[in-house]
Design a protein around this nucleic acid. Structure first.
Lengths: 187, 187
DNA sequence: CGGAATCCGGAGTCCATATTCCGTATTATG
DNA sequence: CATAATACGGAATATGGACTCCGGATTCCG
């Protein structure tokens, strides 16, 4: 009789290492963007390169895993703001929040720039982000905070630009948000 | 008696090849950004790799040479717009012009994003660009097209964002310019 | 033309990095 | 504990691409 298969529990050290890698990579990517060397990630995680690759078979996979997480956080915050009735928050609050996050995370600014810009936002999380943003916009429009003619696409390109600004003129992103918000206001 | 040095004229084929490289690189960079392979540039220029490297000892040097040229063109156009008295032109006209150019030149969008964003715009041409933009802003402010509180830095970050938009959402950059311009308008 | 003086081409060198492989070490069960 | 099942580390390998080198081709000058 073959295949008695009793699937053991995942080894605790394996799980711990996975977390270490994720955390180290998150920090490095935030600091220097996605072109960090895999070896450096392994070192920062106090893990062998072999282990790193067992967890994430490809650099792409690692980047993707982290992008997914962080995007989910963004979505969560957007939902929170959407539910909060606070008029001062909503879309505007979200833009400031995104600016804050991207200014401290170069890797994410790269992810978001692409996600908001291009027409192929692979991954359901990235899709979810577009959805909440659209909802945020809907509320803002209903409240009269932004013009009736403002589209979701408009907001997306504003965020796309925001990503570039946080990446290159880290100190002035708030001013950028102000200008963009003014530009979206009903005339 | 050594060193009688009679410096010959540059060989015509050498000059021709230099132009070919410059043109080929411009086209390739415009199409795919700066991460094109040197070998590909040589091929496109119908020139050997050795020749390519004799003209431009480094990939950096090649990129720089082209960036310089194209930036100079931008400066020239800005000057033209500044001198034209047409109220409809000026800063606004320049932003549309930049959008147009960057939308068709990925390489330039990379250059401009950095030039307008960071605080170290190496090269006098890049410096000149900042200067004309400031002048354009001055006139727009005088004319009341933009708010009195708008600074040169504000315009720079707007252009920085524009670069990202042309690169990722090529179709919507005009809308971005509209929004930004609205955002800069006096309230 | 003749022969320097200059250039040209592109195979080959070199190096940085991602990714693989496998002998050991660690952990989960019974 | 014994032992199979899993995971680990990191040297070794594979790959991609920038840059070098030099014998051969061109062009300039008198």
């Amino acid at each position: 009789m073959p295949t008695p298969r009793t699937p053991r529990r995942t080894r605790t050290d394996a799980e711990r290492n996975r977390d270490r890698v994720l955390e180290a990579a998150r920090a490095l990517f935030a600091e220097s963007g996605h072109d960090v060397q895999m070896a450096e990630v392994a070192r920062a995680a106090s893990v062998g390169i072999g282990t790193l690759y067992r967890k994430f078979p490809t650099r792409e996979a690692l980047i993707e895993a982290i992008a997914e997480r962080r995007t989910a956080d963004l979505v969560a915050e957007a939902r929170r703001l959407a539910d909060t009735g606070d008029p001062a928050q909503g879309l505007a609050g979200f833009l400031y929040h995104v600016g804050q996050v991207l200014a401290e995370d170069r890797g994410m600014s790269e992810v978001i720039e692409k996600a908001m810009g291009s027409a192929e936002p692979r991954g359901e999380t990235r899709e979810a982000l577009l959805t909440v943003v659209a909802e945020l916009l809907g509320r803002a429009r209903a409240r009269g905070t932004v013009g009736q003619d403002v589209t979701a696409g408009d907001v997306n390109i504003v965020i796309c630009g925001l990503a570039a600004v946080t990446r290159n003129a880290a100190g002035d992103w708030q001013r950028y948000v102000e200008i963009a918000l003014d530009g979206l206001h009903p005339r």
